[in-house]
Nucleic acid binder design. Sequence first.
DNA 1: AATTCCAGAGAACAGTTGTTAACTGCATGG
DNA 2: CCATGCAGTTAACAACTGTTCTCTGGAATT
Lengths: 208, 208
Amino acid sequence: MSHTLGIRQAQKQKTRQALLDAALGLLEEQSLSSLGLREVTRAVGIAPTAFYRHFRSTADLGVELVEAALGSLHPMIESTVSDAGDSDERITRAVDLIARHVDAYPAHVRFIARERHGGVQPVREAIRRQLARFAEEVKVALAEHPESAGWSDEDLLMLAGLYVDQMLMTASQFLEAQEGGAEERDRVARMATQRLRLISIGRHHWKD
Amino acid sequence: MSHTLGIRQAQKQKTRQALLDAALGLLEEQSLSSLGLREVTRAVGIAPTAFYRHFRSTADLGVELVEAALGSLHPMIESTVSDAGDSDERITRAVDLIARHVDAYPAHVRFIARERHGGVQPVREAIRRQLARFAEEVKVALAEHPESAGWSDEDLLMLAGLYVDQMLMTASQFLEAQEGGAEERDRVARMATQRLRLISIGRHHWKD
DNA sequence: AATTCCAGAGAACAGTTGTTAACTGCATGG
DNA sequence: CCATGCAGTTAACAACTGTTCTCTGGAATT
């Protein structure tokens, strides 16, 4: 159905993706505000000037990285909240899902955690917008649960935001624990599980 | 009682403090990993080489900034948790305290939020250590409350960590809302209050 | 087949960076 | 009062940065 895009545009998208990947790699040990344009092109193996064919600046590249990173996170959120099952097993499954995601896309998680409060305003803004969108989706999903009867819209959004923040926090903690041994990761998993349990309990007694 | 420290060491500490302050100012619109040594000395008005009389590198300076920033935050934590009073008014007072702190030391708050997951490993480590210390203190304070009867040590630490993270999160949100109008700050305050309420409810029903 | 288009190369620009070395002047301790 | 110590200066280094302009080769269009 999609017509074959031509050799030309295909190559362009290929080097463009290479730039994004290289940047993500370099950002493992620095922040975006110190990432140099030449540094990225050197890692890809193209001339510095060719960078401008794809991005206006490294900040621009950063904004696109936000889409990529949070795009990969998006399906996870849905399956975390919307799915049914016992409350406790829903929680352990969510934590497990986060752990797997961190293992699969560590650079994405690191990028979001780092640049959410980072030194590049447009990137912060992009992350903030996407996370607000996530929270909105979670809110809608929560509203369908029977436990949410009598909840105000604002309180539902509060809870959704709490879940989203908690998810990011947990992901970042898994990332830090990645270097450490398996017992360190287990500790993070247990802590995160208990946090979610406490939130869940608070949620069920909210109406009192 | 403290003997007068001499003109010499006094001047040294003065320019040293000037370097720290200048760095904190420059870090409002960038991250530590892109902060240049020359940039800082230029802002202070001394020669670049004089920097080495005080710090080995900008990362070194960053570690000292952690002590300064979290030192100012330390007394706040105590008065947040340990003080008595009705649960609800304790919460609103805590949120108010956070808001005041952000107004008083915005650069400190920004620095911690930014560098907690930032690109400079020694600084991340320093922040992590200090926050762990905070959580430990909060845990001890919580253990004294009558509501904490029957809680395991690990669960108490989980709750303490949740409080600390929540405090930082709220502070960072107040900072973002600082540019916005008063209604934006009110929204943040309300959200934070409700989050703490939910956590408090979960805490009281934990034993079930 | 002839023409246009455009991703990437190459060279050059004015600045910037961290770090070294050898210095100066002044407060300090003997 | 004189010798030492040391915060800060000056000069110079090689290496790096973002950005502009001009050029080229091959795919795309006509």
